[in-house]
Simulated scan of single mutants.
Amino acid sequence: MTERDKVFSGSIPKFYDTLMVPLIFEGYAADLAALVAASSPGSVLETAAGSGAVTRALAPRLGANARYVVTDLNQPMLDYAAERQGADSRIEWKQADALHLPFDDAAFDVVCCQFGAMFFPDRVAGYAEARRVLEPGGRFVFNVWDRIEKNAFADEITRALATVFPHDPPRFLARTPHGYYDVALIRDDLSRAGFTTITIETQEKLSRAASAHGVAIAYCQGTPLRNEIEARDARLLEFATQRAAQALAGRYGNGPVAGKIQAHVIVATR
């Protein structure tokens, strides 16, 4: 992962939330929220909250007296999520690094993280921090994307952009969001962090959009893939987006499109 892979600023938070969240994140956010809420936790910490997809799904499921701390490394994303969520006295918004959490030991019943672990520069350290702030018997609930070949739109766009930049193809999607898919490695990392009870379920869903062009804009302009394109030649952002849209339309048609997405959902108990 490069430093550019972690930058969610400028117009990215809005594009990410309005385009990427309904495209691939909402369904998994609803599932994760249900999984977290199933134990009726009194205190929840969310790390790498992004634009707040899980926060919006989980907050209505928590009790009136629950404590819900929502964190992210990127302040622009956290600001966007807080504004989108609106007032809720149970929620505390705090900029925080998941690898160095500013909380006491055994402070939470549940720690949750939606599609954030792939961005951790040291995943064992991040998992160890999640375990540290969990009370005994507490759960760390998170998900990660499966390999890019199991995620149709991301794979098609990555291959299309390689034709725009053949000598230096943008590999953000394959490298980071879809780069941490090995279930054996995930189990090993969690074990090294001190977790002993680990369950992993692979979940397939269908991603839908009104058009191939909408999918291309979402990925090329609503994720750090935009940073990677602009670093090569900012003048080619629109051209690259159009090339991705053409590739998607060639495979899925010019009307509404649907493609497979797949992720691993993990529960590790302290």
Rank of each mutant, 00 (worst) to 15 (best):
A210S: 15
L206Y: 07
Q246M: 11
A82V: 00
D188A: 13
T2H: 08
F120C: 10
A81V: 02
V69F: 06
A247D: 02
D155C: 15
E238F: 14
D122P: 00
E26V: 10
V267K: 05
G86R: 08
R4G: 04
I217F: 02
Q221T: 14
L23D: 03
T158F: 07
A53D: 02
L78S: 06
F25L: 15
A64D: 06
A240Y: 05
L32A: 15
D188H: 14
L248R: 07
T223N: 06
I200Y: 01
S191N: 12
T163K: 14
V124D: 00
R131T: 00
S207M: 13
Q203Y: 07
D168I: 06
V141S: 09
D233M: 02
F153W: 08
F25C: 10
L237A: 13
Q242H: 14
L101C: 04
T71C: 09
A57I: 03
K14Y: 11
G137S: 10
R171W: 02
A87D: 09
P41S: 10
L32H: 04
S191D: 06
L23T: 07
A34R: 14
L45A: 09
S191E: 07
A106I: 00
I12Y: 01
T2R: 14
V44T: 05
R175V: 05
L78Q: 08
M20F: 11
